[in-house]
């Protein structure tokens, strides 16, 4: 008898502690969620404020207005910046994916003289932070008459990430069994056909990762566009938005908020939808690093 009551009291105690744990967990979850959301709500709210100063910017505007969105397109070159960034992002993505895929395929599946040297150089090069060659890139672009052109910026982006991307994708391809290639070869398929019909479909997750990260880079990068692009109509969003609020007068704040919302919304949606691929890519990189 005593044993049974003991059991009941233990499970009762267990239940209470379980409830306390659940409540506690939810308190933390809600608290952190608030911390995450408050700045976001604040900036979205600010963009609809009627006054334009930082001082009076509030999360819940009294007289909501879309005037700042209109200003953004009327008074600044925001539309240009947006289009420029999109263009640079797309072209950079295409060039990077093509070069990375082809080079990784060759490094993964062919043996040729200089391969070891090539792989070793890639490994060393991917350790260098991109800014290290800043001055030289500037001068080289100047020599090629590519300063203040988007093409110059695209080349810089694409080239800079190639070593890391090849390293990543080559590692991923290494996990695709060679027996698949050999079977296809026996069926008379050439290198190009093997690449298109076997390697490409199987590397889709890592291609998506490379494509996505190359697409994202121009939206946030500051150093290179600042250095390469000088005219107002050629700027990218990062430069445009930064200049809007880095000046001493804080009167552009709400306009910046409107711009931030317009940039952040599509990028955020893209990220959330494709997070699966991002996580896969990062883990692949970690285990091959």
């Amino acid at each position: 008898m005593t044993k049974k009551t003991n059991d009941i009291s233990i499970s009762g105690f267990h239940k209470i502690s379980e409830i306390i744990k659940t409540v506690f967990t939810y308190i933390i979850l809600v608290f952190v969620a608030l911390l995450v959301i408050v700045p976001i709500v604040w900036i979205v709210g600010s963009s609809f404020n009627s006054s334009s100063s930082l001082m009076s910017a509030s999360a819940i505007p009294e007289n909501p207005t879309i005037v700042h969105y209109k200003e953004l397109f009327g008074e600044t070159k925001f539309a240009f910046w947006y289009f420029n960034t999109l263009k640079i992002a797309v072209i950079n993505m295409i060039i990077s994916v093509i070069l990375t895929m082809l080079s990784s395929y060759v490094f993964s599946r062919f043996s040729f003289k200089g391969k070891k040297l090539g792989l070793l150089s890639i490994m060393v090069l991917q350790m260098f932070p991109g800014f290290m060659g800043m001055m030289a890139v500037y001068n080289i672009l100047a020599q090629m008459n590519l300063l203040n052109t988007h093409f110059g910026l695209i080349l810089t982006y694409a080239a800079g990430q190639i070593p890391y991307n090849i390293w990543l994708v080559k590692g991923y391809m290494g996990n695709i069994p060679r027996s698949l290639d050999e079977a296809a070869k026996l069926d008379g398929a050439g290198s190009v056909r093997i690449f298109v019909t076997i390697i490409l479909p199987l590397t889709k997750p890592i291609i998506t990762f490379v494509a996505l990260s190359q697409f994202m880079a121009p939206w946030m990068d500051f150093i290179f566009p600042r250095m390469i692009l000088s005219s107002d109509t050629k700027k990218t969003l990062a430069i445009g938005l930064y200049d809007m609020i880095s000046s001493d007068t804080n009167n552009n704040f709400t306009m910046f908020a409107a711009g931030a919302v317009l940039v952040a919304v599509p990028i955020t949606i893209l990220y959330v939808c494709l997070q699966k691929y991002l996580i896969q890519g990062i883990m692949a990189g970690a285990n091959k690093a």
Binding site: S103, F110, G133, G160, I162
Partner: peptide
């Protein structure tokens, strides 16, 4: 074949990564 495929990548990396890094 491998060299032909790698050629554009090598040129781009040499000019925009290797030379700048050594210069740096």
């Amino acid at each position: 074949f491998p060299y032909a495929v790698l050629a554009p990548t090598i040129c781009l990396v040499l000019l925009f990564v290797v030379v700048p890094i050594i210069f740096g």
